[in-house]
Design a protein around this nucleic acid. Structure first.
Lengths: 218, 218
DNA sequence: TACTCGATGATTGCATCCAATTCAAGAGAA
DNA sequence: TTCTCTTGAATTGGATGCAATCATCGAGTA
């Protein structure tokens, strides 16, 4: 007997995926209330898989659940954001180290293309390209924990990166692009230590920039 | 009207907590099947909150879920374990940096007591003391992401730490204790850089030790 | 023997229903 | 007015039941 649902046993994961996307695109902003029945209707499912999805997103830090009360898109404080950037500063170089030997000439060319595109793009397009640039550095090695952890950190701070750009674009920061090209260069030369150093500095500088706009965090 | 349940709206979290404990104590070993109805009966609940608990533990990496099939206590491969130790090597020093200023003389005395006790303990007691020692270094600062991440890494590798000790205790390793005392000393002097360095080396050495017993991982 | 292919029981996935809780608005008293 | 209490709608939490799926085992065939 053929089932009505294509993929039985994955409703929760599917809903979580689409909700995650909605949060990252900004359709749901930090602090926004998430009602179980809304999501359920929108996905033609009951509230049960929605609750599973919410639990998953809670574990990823994207959603905050309060018992008997409801679910909200997680807010991030300045202190928490700094924490996450400091963690990234220490583990992304390690992740890059895992990937470096697997990034061939074609991959590096693509990275350079993204870096160049970024120089003449703005706001949402820049955000997307920057994310693509960095995550492309990490998509070769089959790490389990490390890759997932880094991706979560990117996701949890994504909304605030956009909020930051909206404010800080008045003084366009050239050194970001310079650092991107330094990273590309180090990867092309397969210089692991230099790549780690530049990447750590890149994240560190971004973190310090954030401190200058504490107003973004509510 | 008084309810029959003390805490409505927390069944999933409560079950997750007890299941997590059961996994850490070894009652459920890596690879063991977890049946929803078993857990439900054992906690006098239905399968709904059990499934929530399983989703939470899955997100923590303690449980592996397969759609339409079941749940198992997560296995960890040697490569994954190495990854986790490398991450710890990079972020635990940072977490220690957060906590160092908050560790007063009394706290350091307690740490030293644990370090001494460990020298004349074995197996399960050593595991417990070692965990208490390190986690006590981290329980002062109110970090959100960093503390949770480190705790998860400890939990995910806990079973294997026990398995390792059961095998490797034939050649008791004195340098572990030496390093513990170096850490205590650095904390007492509030020497952040030295504390970071010693801790990173301590974790790194443990990771390299693990490589010598790949048979632990299935 | 070894292999394929159905049936059957066990287990999970999800929808529905009811209970528990929260929140907000309004009545009543100080 | 302001505070407290009550009431009820809105929402979440959890139990039950049925559908979907998987694993096991045995019959049949090469």
């Amino acid at each position: 007997m053929a089932s009505l649902v294509i993929n039985h046993g994955a409703a929760g994961a599917r809903i979580a995926g689409e909700l995650r996307e909605a949060i990252l695109t900004g359709e749901y902003a930090p602090g926004a209330r998430i009602r179980q029945e809304d999501i359920a209707d929108r996905h033609g499912a009951s509230r049960v898989p929605v609750r599973e999805a919410l639990r998953m997103l809670e574990a990823e830090g994207l959603v905050t659940l309060v018992a008997n009360t409801g679910a909200w898109v997680s807010r991030v404080s300045l202190a928490e954001c700094q924490e996450m950037y400091q963690i990234r500063e220490r583990i992304e170089p390690l992740l890059l180290r895992y990937n470096l030997p697997l990034l061939d000439a074609a991959a590096v060319d693509e990275l350079e293309r993204l870096a160049v595109l970024m120089e003449s793009s703005e706001l949402d397009e820049f955000i997307a390209l920057d994310r693509a640039f960095h995550l492309s550095c990490y998509d070769r090695a089959e790490t389990t924990v490390l890759g997932a952890t880094v991706l979560q950190l990117w996701n949890r701070t994504h909304s605030y990166r956009r909020a930051y750009m909206r404010i800080a674009r008045t003084d366009p920061d050239r050194s970001v692009h310079h650092e991107h090209h330094l990273i590309v260069s180090a990867i092309r030369r397969q210089d692991v230590d230099e790549a780690e150093r530049v990447l750590a500095g890149h994240i560190r500088r971004t973190r310090l920039e954030l401190t200058r706009h504490p107003d973004i965090f509510e």
